[in-house]
Structure formats: C-alpha cells, structure tokens
Design a protein around this nucleic acid. Structure first.
Length: 597
RNA sequence: GGAGCCAUAGCUCAAUUGGUUAGAGCGCCUCCCUGUCACGGAGGAGGUUGCGGGUUCGAGCCCCGUUGGCUCCGCCA
C-alpha cells in the first residue's frame, strides 16, 4: 500500500517483521479497553483489526479515550511485538500492536442508532435505515464481499466456457406479457413511456439472430411485483444466458459446467446431488404430484402420494370424488395434540378446510379424528399400503389434503410438507440438492376457461408446428425448464420459438391474431424473418445463488442496499414525490387513488 | 388486493396474564483501575409502553382503528 497522509498500512498488514517501523493506520474505533493506565483501542478498516496502545504518558490519552466508538481516526506510531502471553490468536495482526505517538480525528461519530460491535440482534427496519452501519458489521460486510467474489467467479467461468458479455438497454419498451412494468415518462414525447426491462429477453434473442453465438450478462431486472423472503420487490440481478444452435441438453450441460464448480469453489464441504457433473431431472407433472410445487426442496425426506382413485367412490364425504394426496411423517407421531391443532390453522391460512391426519399405531391400528371412516380391513388398510414404507412396524402419521381442484390439493400439501419438515427439523443440513424441472405445459386453462400461455410465450412447443396443429393444446409441453436447489428456483429458461410460422400459430391458439404478434413483438418477429438460428437460454438469479452460498434465508441479507418488502428504500427515502417542475417536464399530472368510503 | 405475527429506554429483552413508583443486560455519561482483547469495578442519565379512540375504579396487558416492519396467499411470462 502506497503511503499517503492517512496511512502507510492497512489494519491487516502488520506482522512481527514490521517491529520497530514507524507506520500510520487509519480506520474506525471498533472497541476500547481503558485500563486506567494503558488504553487499548481496536482499530478496524475493511481489511482487519489492529490493536493500538495509547500509553499513560501520552498527553492526548484522555482525549482519545473519550472518542465514541465508530469515530474515524488516523494514528501514527511504532510497531512492536506484544509482550509474552498477550498475543491474540483471533486476529491476523494479533502478534503485534502499535505504540501510538499521535493521532488525528478524521470523522466524528454521533450517538449510534445501532451497535456495529458487538453485532447484537437489531430490527431489520433499523438495519435498512442505517444500512451503512449494518454494512460495517462483519456479518453483512463479509456477505457483500462473498457476493463480489461469486460474481467475479461467474464472469471468469462464463468466459472460460466460451460466452461473451454484453450490455443491453435499460430504457426500453414495455413488454405486454408477464409482470407489471416500471414506467419512465418521456420528456420529448408527451404521453409516451419507456419501461425498465423485466429481463433482457428480446435483446438477448436478437443478439443470437445477430450472429453472436454465446451471450451472457449480469443483468439488472425490474418487475413491479410484491416481495417475499427470497424475492426483492422491484429489482434483482440475473445471470442472463443465451446460446445459438443448441438443444435443451446443451443448455443444461453449460449450466452444470458453471454451477458444479461454482458451488464447489464456495462451499467445498457441502455434498451436491450431481451425478457425473449432471443434475437429476424431474418433470413438472411429477414435481407437482410428489412435492406439490414446481420448486421442490429435495432435502425433505418424505414425498406425496396420490390417493385419488381410492376415494373415487368413497363414503367419506370430505374426500369423495376429490383429488386426494397424502404423505407420512413418522417423526410427527409423538407430537402433542396442540401441534396438530396448530397445523389445522396453518392449512386454513392456505385456503384448505383443515389438515386431516391418521395415526398409524405400532400395533397396526389407525387412530385420530378421521380414523373411524378408514377401517383397517378396508380403505384404511389400502391407504397404509400405499403411503407407508415397508415394513409397517413403526408408528407413523399420514397427512391428507383433498380438493376438487387438483392443483390446490397438490399445493396445499406441498406447502404443509415444507412447514412440517421445518417445524420438526427434518430438512437435511449442509447439502445442496439440485434438480432440473422440465416439460412445463405450453398452455393452461385460465379461470375464465380460456387457453393461455402457462409460461414464456416465446418457448418452442415440443413437437413444433405439427404438435400445435394436431394435439389438444392442453397436452402440449414446451421446451421450458427451471433449475431448483433446496426449494429455491435459481434459474428459469427455454429453448425459444425462432420460427415465425410456429410463433403465429402458438399465439393463435392463445387467442391472438397475427397482427398482435406483429405489433407487440415487432422487433423480434421481424428479425426472425431474416434467418434466425435455433437458440435457447436460461437466467439464474444471482441474489438467490449468493443466498445459498452465504447460507442466508433472507434475500435482503445478500444485497448491499435492499428495499423493504413494501418496495420502499428506507435509507434513500424512495419512492418520493416529484416536484411540479419535474412533472411538467414529463407532461404528467398526478391522479391519486380515491379513498374508500 | 387479502391473512397472520410483531411494536416497552439508543439496542436486546422482562414486567407473576388487568393492580403500587415499568425492570435487567449492552450502549452512553462521571469516577476508579498499567496488559486488556465481549477487560473489570462503582455511580448516573435515559420511558407519552408506535399512534388515536374505547372498555374499566384501574390498561404495557382487553377491544376497535391506524402506522411501520416481517412472514404467507394473490402476483412474480
């Protein structure tokens, strides 16, 4: 480090070899230990901590002793080895200390709204409002550094895999499908708006049509939707990827060549469920059936069974004729009644009437509220044989969900699977369980009984034009896929529909006239008429990858400056009203919502 | 758009379930202390219990509303 007026070394540089040297350090007062005679201060910067010693003979000792924690100072002094028995092995500079001869105050510190050290628990609201203090703390500081290293590694690996990095516009046009857009009013064109990209989807496809073969970008994406623990409102980052002349298998292979080494690099101790560098694959249909979700957490050691046929003509009215799903959790057997009651409430929150369960006693009897409808010599026995593992010795509990709506029956039990596994601490620890989810349906039936795209309208239907013209649309699959790890959707992608004829047909089935395609996707459909290569891609979520590698469960804890769940930035006070002058320039008047009566 | 949980000192929590003057630790201030490293010790300041109503002889605690935060549903091609 070149010397300057502030410092000659960082707070992680000095070692016994520097003994006798006169040096300058600069940083924050991390902690103080005033022993009456000698005063110790832990001086902290980005790189580390160095103990500095202010001897009782120093005229300024009283002054420096009264500087509050987190004051920024520069100190000059002599490096010396610590006396025998006072070495601190917890810090890299623990064998030395700085004998301070003079100091300068560089930045005063007001009373702190939260502690930087020690890092005791602090409400997230305070942490968001004073993010610069939270970021000083070791926990978040290290996570942000980890994020930086992960992104560097991704860039390096993508380039090694033969991809080129591109930039695409941020001010662009609104896309008619998908999430709500963020709009930016145009000054030059009154009443017209740019939209921030939900993803660089059409641009990356246009780059393939432009003859670039393998694209990537660490791309900001903007979607005006509500937040979740694993989803920031407003904006997030994707590793956006697109490849020409590829099949689904080629995209998977490229991503496996990225993810396996990446996760090994940053979490070498955690086993991964890859085989020969490849992740297992699961169809969307199987995932919904066995896990009740399209982002299954494979760390949970039990799966869902379908019992619908058993209850087709049942006399048990709560289940009869409905989709019935069930799973068994032996660890639930000894739970108190209050635990089962609390699960009823959880299920009701999800819109189910409750959560039915059967207890399988060690001597083979069934008990519980609905046991009287499930004779062991009848349907009860059939359930046991279908759901419980052999041999049938151990006590167990079978949980059910039933609904006329198949998807709802599946989703409720899928969510209960996660809740129960979490509550009983059954989620396998320190492991990454990846899976590809493939064969998404091309179309689905809307609530209004209309056929609509179930995912990206730009996905290639499996079977191509012929399938579109000969099959029931609801039976069609798309070359659409997700990558899931530990219950998080960490990537989503598709082989694209690059053939105008198939594109028009696909939209026609969803009820759109060719003119709609021509106006809404003018740039892309036009490009496809001038020689488009077959292409496909994927977009892993950077924030979620960092979450997994940092071991965080809250996505805000891997982002330097996140918004709160409600889309407010508590540090910068965004969003904020615009001035009348600003509004005039972009030709806007404010129309406030009418308050409810 | 909907549901649930939370809100007490700068911070983390407590207050025997409606009962006297709302407590403790950390931080802050004053003092003591020459080898600490989560230093130790003595003392002190600091509260409209988020806010507004209500019930009650009496509310931090019960009820209604509201604000903020979090979690979930919807939403997220």
């Amino acid at each position: 480090m070149p010397a300057n007026p502030y410092r000659t070394h960082t707070c992680n540089d000095l070692r016994p070899a520097h003994a006798g040297e006169t040096v300058k350090l600069a940083g924050w007062i991390h902690n103080k230990r005033d022993l009456g005679g000698v005063l110790f201060i832990d001086l902290r910067d980005h790189y580390g901590i160095t103990q500095i010693v202010i001897p009782p003979t120093a005229a300024f000792q009283d002054e420096i002793a009264h500087l509050p924690k987190e004051t920024v100072i520069s100190v000059e002094g002599t490096v010396r080895p610590r006396p025998d028995g006072t070495v601190n092995t917890n810090i890299a500079t623990g064998e030395i200390e700085l004998d301070v001869a003079g100091y300068e105050k560089l930045g005063a510190c007001a009373p702190l709204p939260m502690n930087v050290f020690p890092e005791d628990h602090t409400p997230e609201e305070t942490r968001l409002k004073y993010r610069f203090l939270d970021l000083r703390r070791s926990q978040l500081h290290q996570t942000v550094m980890l994020r930086s290293r992960i992104i560097s590694s991704i860039r390096r690996k993508m380039i090694e895999l033969g991809f080129q990095e591109f930039q695409t516009p941020i001010l662009t046009s609104s896309s008619p499908e998908g999430a709500r857009d963020f709009l930016v009013p145009s000054r030059l064109y009154p009443g017209e708006f740019y939209a921030l990209p939900q993803a660089p989807q059409q641009f990356k496809q246009l780059l393939m049509v432009s003859g670039f073969d393998r694209y990537f970008q660490i791309a900001p994406c903007f979607r005006d939707e509500d937040g979740r623990a694993d989803r920031t409102p407003g904006e997030f980052y994707q590793l956006d990827v697109e490849m020409s002349f590829v099949t689904q298998d080629d995209v998977f292979a490229a991503m496996e060549a990225l993810f396996v080494p990446l996760f090994r690099e940053f979490k070498s101790a955690w086993p991964m469920n890859e085989t020969g560098g490849a992740f297992p694959r699961l169809t969307y249909r199987d995932s919904m059936l066995r896990y009740g979700t399209d982002k299954p957490d494979l760390r949970i050691p039990f799966e869902i069974s379908d019992l619908t046929p058993l209850f087709a003509k049942s006399e048990f009215k709560a289940f009869a004729g409905k989709t019935v799903r069930a799973f068994a959790v032996p660890q639930a057997f000894d739970q108190p009644r209050s635990w089962f009651d609390q699960l009823q409430e959880e299920a009701k929150k999800l819109g189910a009437p409750g959560l039915a369960y059967l207890k399988f006693e060690s001597h083979g009897n069934l008990s519980g509220p609905i046991a009287k409808f499930m004779p062991t010599d009848g349907i009860g026995g059939e359930i046991v044989r279908k759901v419980l593992p052999e041999p049938l010795a151990a006590p167990n509990v079978i949980f059910f969900s039933a609904d006329h709506d198949e998807t709802k029956a599946a989703k409720v039990l899928g969510r209960m699977r996660e809740i129960i596994a979490t509550q009983l601490d059954l989620v396998e620890k320190n492991v990454f369980k990846f899976t590809w989810i493939v064969d998404y349906p091309m179309y689905e039936m809307s609530d209004e009984k209309k056929v609509e795209f179930s995912h990206n309208p730009f996905s290639m239907p499996q079977g191509g034009f012929e399938a579109l013209t000969t099959q029931d649309p609801l039976t069609l699959f798309a070359y659409q896929y997700d990558l899931v790890c530990n219950g998080y959707e960490i990537a989503s992608g598709a082989i694209r529909n690059h053939v105008p004829e198939i594109m028009y047909k696909a939209f026609e089935i969803a009820g759109y006239d060719p003119s709609v395609v021509d106006t809404r996707f003018a740039g892309m459909i036009n490009a496809f008429k001038y020689g488009a290569p077959p292409h496909g891609g994927i977009a892993p979520g950077i924030d979620r990858i960092v979450m997994l590698l940092a071991g965080e469960t809250n996505i805000r804890d891997v982002i330097a400056f996140p918004m709160a769940q409600n889309g407010r930035d508590l540090l910068m006070n965004a969003p904020a009203p615009a001035t009348e002058k600003q509004l005039r320039e972009v030709h806007l008047t404010i129309r406030k919502p009418v308050p409810k009566a």
